[in-house]
Amino acid sequence: MAYYSTNEFKGGLKIMIDGDPCAIIENEFVKPGKGQAFVRAKIRNLKTGRVVERTYKSGESLEAADVMDVDLQYLYTDGEFWHFMDPQSFEQQAASAEAVGDAVKWLKEQDMCEVTLWNGTPLAVTPPNFVMLAVADTDPGVRGDTSGGGGKPATLETGAVVRVPLFIDIGETLKIDTRTGEYVGRAKD
């Protein structure tokens, strides 16, 4: 089993805490002139997304988490699992609803996603920063209104609901920023 000393701590390092894989966000060396040296770390639990603070004695060792990020192509869902494939090796991975989390509303077949694997199993899915999705339902478009003011809700093909300008019609393909969930523009043909 691999271990990291606190001397190796840095942002992004993956370690096991209470049985869960976690990533260090930031860490700080704290020591009174005549006393115990500590390393204080802000850590994200990769399973729950929760951020916790932990303090370690300087020099202490922690178990490394076997976590890596891979780029996989989203294939389909069978309702229980979301299936991804490595386009080079054709190796497939099945991600649970828990692992897919909020990414589910942006997942479109054939899109490349970043999948975080823990001990070889999907732990989290990050959609591309920008996705192109068709409008499945919205109020009829108001022609000529390019003011950008106001706006209306539109339901996209994946089920996500985003706020779009008044002129958008059903069937149009839109570019969406998945990090903010905001409409960026119409897809260029």
Partner: peptide
Amino acid sequence: DGWLDLVMTH
């Protein structure tokens, strides 16, 4: 003393 240092610094 280690615990007191933890209280002091944190």
